[in-house]
């Protein structure tokens, strides 16, 4: 049977973690595993430190606590650009529970919010003070046994952040794929775009081909054409019960085009 340990201080919680422990954020995924008896750990670690739910500014960067729920994120005016990815996670009850920290570890088809963090080039901080970039975290998350306490990023330029979730069940279904883009512009040309896909690999991944092809181009039909051709470079979607790999490869450039051209998806 499982053991549950609850700590007030997150540093203590992390220090107690070993190979048999699993940290629980909102528990929306961990509890499912427990209910179905399919968990590979003996001990559940919780933390009630209220700082895990904080939102603050630090030298121009936004720092959000890993325990912030999707609902809290969607309601926070300083995080208005994240309302779309936060509202994209589950229904209202799931959003009241699901944390932004847990989303970084959620396996496909989940990870819509993590995709936004990847587009924003976020950095995470652990209870032990370690800092790492979002890509390093996503690449190592299967074996990651520390507790993420904070996620920080620069706010996107106005109008330069877009998110789109593609699901089959309306109004709410899990993602066939989701896309998020940071699109800074200078003189009407894209400079340093970051485009991230969820559902196109084992973790959220950058569409580096599209990013390079957008550099210096205007955000119009002709300007984005090379980026659409390059959209699938380095991405390898799986076949699963939601869609085939072929389907995802076919629709990903279509949804990327819509997202890049439709201003209604811009924050």
């Amino acid at each position: 049977m499982i053991k549950v340990d609850t700590y007030r201080a997150v540093a203590e919680a992390e220090a107690s973690m070993d190979g048999q422990s699993r940290y629980m954020g909102g528990g929306t995924l961990v509890m499912r595993d427990l209910n179905y008896g399919s968990y590979g750990f003996e001990r559940l670690v919780r933390c009630t430190d209220p700082r895990l739910n904080s939102v603050r500014r630090d030298r121009g960067r936004i720092v959000i606590g890993a325990g912030l729920t999707m609902a809290e994120c969607a309601e926070n005016r300083d995080l208005a650009f994240l309302a779309a990815p936060a509202m994209g996670v589950g229904g209202p009850a799931v959003r009241n529970m699901a944390t932004v920290g847990g989303n970084l570890f959620a396996p496909p088809p989940f990870g819509d919010f993590a995709t936004a963090m990847l587009a924003l080039d976020a950095r995470v901080r652990t209870a032990g003070g370690e800092e790492l970039g979002i890509e390093a975290l996503l690449a190592s998350r299967r074996t990651f046994r520390r507790i993420v306490t904070e996620i920080e990023f620069l706010p996107p330029p106005r109008g330069g952040f877009r998110f789109r979730k593609v699901s089959r069940v309306k109004p709410k279904g899990v993602s066939v794929l989701s896309i998020c883009a940071l699109l800074p512009q200078s003189g009407g040309r894209i400079r340093g775009a970051r485009i991230a896909f969820n559902g196109m690999g084992a973790t959220p991944l950058r569409a580096t081909g599209s990013e390079a092809a957008l550099e210096g181009r205007p955000l119009d039909r002709n300007g984005i054409a090379p980026a659409l051709d390059a959209a699938l470079q380095g991405l390898s979607p799986a076949d699963d019960e939601l869609a085939t790999s072929w389907y995802r490869r076919t629709v990903a450039p279509v949804y990327l085009r819509r997202m890049l051209l439709e201003r209604s998806h811009a924050y």
């Binding site: 549950v4 609850t6 629980m24 528990g27 929306t28 509890m31 499912r32 209910n35 559940l44 919780r46 609902a71 209202p92 009850a93 799931v94 009241n96 529970m97």
Partner: peptide
Amino acid sequence: KLQLACITLAEA
């Protein structure tokens, strides 16, 4: 707040 009891840890 609306929550799903089946995935809420009782002791929480």
